[in-house]
């Protein structure tokens, strides 16, 4: 599992790689909290290399989305979501609500 944040002009781009289960979701939460604590409420998650995104990671995603909306009128957007992960997010009704983009460039450009 790897997480890398790049600070851009209008948002933070967070590239995710590998498995995000109950063991690794706290690391994701910490990284997103770091962005929000720095006053960044526009966040793009680059999901291209995500292999697994379980309920604990989804809880972190929902938490960050809610907080970005509440604290800074921003949100979290997703880029390059692999099909299987998209199906999982769709099962819990997240995909129609969180904006998704085919690649990170388009997602970053949407802010």
């Amino acid at each position: 599992m790897k997480i890398e944040t790049t600070h851009l002009k209008r948002c933070d781009l967070v590239a995710l790689e590998g498995r995000f289960d109950s063991n690794t979701a706290p690391d994701l939460e910490k990284v997103l909290r770091d962005s929000m604590d720095e006053g960044v409420y526009q966040i793009v998650l680059d999901m291209e290399s995500v292999e697994f995104f379980g309920s604990a990671a989804i809880r972190v995603l929902i938490m960050a989305y809610k907080e970005c909306r509440a604290r800074g009128r921003g949100d979290v957007r997703l880029a390059a979501v692999p099909d299987r992960i998209a199906q999982v997010l769709d099962l819990v009704g997240i995909l129609p609500l969180i904006e998704t983009f085919p690649d990170k460039t388009t997602a970053v450009g949407s802010y």
Binding site: G54, S55, I58, R59, I62, M63, Y65, K66, R69, A70, V88, L91, V92, G93, I94, L97, I98
Partner: peptide, 17 residues
């Protein structure tokens, strides 16, 4: 799973899956 994200309670997802 139909509620807006800002109103979501985040429990019960594991069993749901």
């Amino acid at each position: 799973t139909k509620a807006p994200l800002t109103e979501r309670n985040i429990g019960g997802l594991g069993l749901f899956f």
